[in-house]
């Protein structure tokens, strides 16, 4: 129990951000038109490519001779980058198509 309290007091800032961000996420999306559902899903999927940052931060503190971790970390960065770069590029293409349709 004391450890849970310790965890909360150590991460109080994070908990505040967490709570506010949940409401913010709800608010931002609540009025989105149906046509934007797929591009928005794709866009938010690309944002979760942020996960790559975690892999970078962990690999930076890994000892240089710990090859198993380094390889796992590099794989993590590769997959995270595919998610981030690919995600934003795909979203861009979807929106391009969407704009063309609107102009016609």
């Amino acid at each position: 129990m004391s450890e849970i309290i310790q965890f909360i007091s150590n991460n109080l800032n994070m908990i505040y951000i967490l709570a506010f961000a949940i409401f913010l996420g709800f608010e931002i999306i609540s009025k989105v038109p149906t046509v934007l559902h797929t591009p928005l899903m794709s866009g938010s999927n690309a944002i979760s490519g942020l996960i790559l940052i975690g892999a970078i931060l962990l690999i930076r503190v890994t000892p240089s001779d710990n090859y198993i971790t380094l390889i796992l970390g590099t794989l993590g960065i590769v997959f995270g980058s595919i998610n981030a770069f690919g995600g934003f590029a795909v979203t861009g293409r979807m929106l391009e198509m969407f704009n063309k349709k609107r102009k016609k």
Partner: peptide, 21 residues
């Protein structure tokens, strides 16, 4: 886990907006 606020914010935004979506 890595004490990065951008990841926390972005992740939660995607998480909560994803559920609404």
């Amino acid at each position: 886990m890595t004490d990065n606020k951008l990841m926390l914010l972005g992740g939660i935004l995607v998480g909560s907006s994803g559920i609404i979506l």
